[in-house]
């Protein structure tokens, strides 16, 4: 990882935490993201319930903990609460009850104007890629760095690096809609990872892709996980989950119904 992430900052709640050299690892915070760099769990859900309106339940009393560096599949049918789970992680939604903690931060207490800084520490990959249509591949990836106020020189160095890592080196001046679905998803992953976030969230990243392409995307996410990044991937791609044999968290009607290590998509019949 780059040396600047070793810079230690006081993790106070104020808008601009004063720079103070402290050796306490629990007090360390990612310079760009607000996420505390510690060895504790990356994600903690404690009795989280999310209601839409008065009677629709998105999540129902879910408690789960994901350690730093883990690879987790979030599985379940449509409407089981996978998307609610993901949207709670980036504070696109707030929990109705319970607490969501990401990187040591209680998101319920995070002020709204701090949300952008939270998101800089979390890479996001979506089923529909969410690329900026008028910009070429290079500019799409560079945007994530411009947002954090990175120096132009650093941007010129990091973007080609991540593009070659994701196998897009020769596509940098293409527009998103000139690329195939698999290539677009690679761009989206490159953008999500260019900041070297400590948490990467993928919501159905292979949902629009054919099986062969899906495997390529999966391998890319796995390699990212091997660098130490926690990956949470929502999917209902049974084959993929069975092949990987990673931790599986299953949701059904908003309830947590299964949480197993080295598991398959469905419970194996005894």
């Amino acid at each position: 990882m780059s040396t600047d992430s070793d810079t230690e900052l006081n993790s106070a709640e104020e808008s601009r935490p004063p720079e103070r050299p402290t050796r306490d690892p629990e007090r360390r915070i990612d310079r760009r993201s607000l996420l505390r760099a510690g060895d504790g769990p990356m994600v903690i859900f404690e009795g989280v319930t999310k209601r839409y309106g008065s009677d629709v339940l998105g999540l129902d009393d879910v408690s789960v903990s994901i350690d730093a560096g883990e690879f987790v599949f979030l599985v379940g049918a449509s409407g089981s609460g996978k998307s609610t789970f993901i949207r709670l992680l980036i504070k696109e939604l707030d929990a109705s009850e319970g607490t969501v903690t990401v990187g040591g931060r209680d998101l319920g207490k995070l002020r709204r104007n701090k949300v952008p800084y939270l998101r800089r520490g979390i890479g996001c990959v979506f089923q529909d890629f969410k690329l900026l249509p008028g910009r070429n591949i290079y500019e799409n990836v560079a945007y994530a760095l411009e947002v954090t106020g990175d120096a132009p020189r650093a941007i010129r160095r990091k973007v080609p690096e991540i593009l070659s890592l994701t196998g897009l080196a020769d596509k940098s001046d293409r527009l998103p809609d000139e690329l195939s679905g698999g290539e677009q998803q690679r761009v989206s992953i490159a953008r999500a990872f260019v900041n070297h976030p400590r948490l990467l969230i993928a919501d159905e990243p292979t949902g629009n892709l054919d099986p062969d392409t899906s495997i390529g995307i999966m391998q890319l996410l796995y390699r990212i996980n091997r660098t130490g990044t926690t990956v949470v991937m929502a999917t209902h791609d049974r084959e993929l989950v069975d092949k990987m044999q990673m931790r599986v968290i299953a949701l059904e009607n908003g309830r947590l119904v299964r949480d197993e290590r080295k598991a398959s998509y469905a419970t194996v019949e005894p």
Binding site: Y117, R120, K130, Y143, V147, R191
Partner: peptide, 16 residues
């Protein structure tokens, strides 16, 4: 508005 939504997702502040 889709573009604005994406900008927010990658952590752009409102003023940015």
């Amino acid at each position: 508005r889709r573009e604005v939504e994406v900008m927010r997702l990658v952590g752009a502040t409102n003023w940015f």
